[in-house]
Design a protein around this nucleic acid. Structure first.
Lengths: 215, 215
DNA sequence: TAGATTGTTAATCGATTAACAATC
DNA sequence: TAGATTGTTAATCGATTAACAATC
């Protein structure tokens, strides 16, 4: 039932879903079956309408006077985000940042399965990080042929000057999306889904606030 | 001349400044003295008005028909963001993520000077990462007394379950701001400036787009 | 001067918030 | 039933975009 209207859902709402999901899992842990927007909203200092609107984009419906079923909401958010099934990925750049991503269990919990990592440092090649082997970058196209699963995502954790070249390489082996941690904007074909992690940008907001009154 | 109105500047604009700054530095590198909004805008696929509005918040003014002076704009953005002077910080959690931040030269270039790192792993204590010594977390209050410079920022790169405790500790030794990389929202006094790096949130947007049509 | 570019005021757009009817 | 909560329509708010005057 692919929608014909192609109405893009509000990004701010999507960005708030993971935190709701975390909270809901805590509630499930405690054995709670039912939750209200009011309760979620007060946890985050938001208005309950906003939570309701956010949750509505997942398609899950609540019951007036009662609330939402915790389990249904968890499943709804996870399905909406595509976190209810595995997404296979390659990661290029096994420095500290790349290693952090490989080691972080949270992403696996969200379905992210990194099936191979790549780096040109000979000391790293052949190593295993969390069941993920590190290969030479030159092997990337060869390796791709041996994988039966679609590799849908390329994670770029190389230094900025190499990021564009690496991203091109990943696009060439057929990934549909690029998750970029390098502090450069990458130029990619329009059909490639692209998302950046903006560390300097986050620092900019913090740093600006810190210096706001000092003058 | 601290403004009395306290009008908060648009966060979206602040978030775009670092990318302008990167581009401007490239232009300076090439020897360009003058730059127009039109030129910056086309580089990022934006409208020139938006660039102009964004740059306006820094207080730098351009000259009609001419454009902006590259050097003046760089200085203006850096000053606005507080990147033209050092900000001293403590970092707690010297795992892969913490190490990545310690090793990344870009932050130092933006004035971030991490003067001490903390971790409870005995293998790390005493080590130096980029001129920054790793101490036991228990030493944090002792160490603070020996620093003459104000430590204005605490960077939290510990696992989620420890993040709140560590943040409290940092607030207790007197930091004015917390930069949190752990995937939890931290509860802090209202006068503490707080900013999160939201990795799961970034992944959520990407993952959602990737799965949008699949149903 | 003519044309390009800035700075600013007005219009549009999208997200947040308010108001309220529906309902269990 | 009465009250709490959802879902939805309308109002507000802020950011983006359009229009245009000022100017070098």
């Amino acid at each position: 039932m692919a929608g014909s209207a192609e109405k893009s859902l509000p990004v701010p709402s999507i960005l708030r879903l993971p935190k709701y999901l975390r909270l809901l899992k805590e509630f499930r842990q405690k054995g709670d079956k039912i939750i209200s927007c009011t309760r979620i909203a007060e946890e985050f200092g938001q208005l309950s309408v906003q939570v309701r609107k956010d949750l509505a984009i997942t398609g899950v419906v609540g019951r007036p006077k009662v609330g939402y079923q915790v389990e249904e909401l968890i499943n709804g958010i996870e399905h909406f985000l595509g976190w209810d099934h595995k997404t296979y990925a390659y990661l290029v750049g096994v420095g500290n940042l790349g290693s952090a991503i490989l080691n972080y269990a949270g992403f696996l919990e969200h379905g992210l399965k990194i099936i191979a990592a790549f780096d040109n440092n000979p000391k790293l090649i052949g190593k295993k990080i969390k069941n993920c082997t590190v290969y030479s970058i030159s092997e990337i196209s060869k390796l791709k042929l041996s994988h039966t699963k679609d590799v849908q995502m390329g994670i770029v954790t190389v230094p900025a000057p190499e990021a564009q070249r690496i991203a091109n390489l990943l696009v060439n082996v057929g990934v549909r999306s690029i998750w970029n941690y390098a502090p450069v904007r990458l130029d990619l074909p329009p059909d490639i889904i692209y998302e950046e992690v903006k560390l300097s940008e986050s620092y900019a907001v913090l740093s600006h606030r810190l210096n706001q009154r000092t003058s």
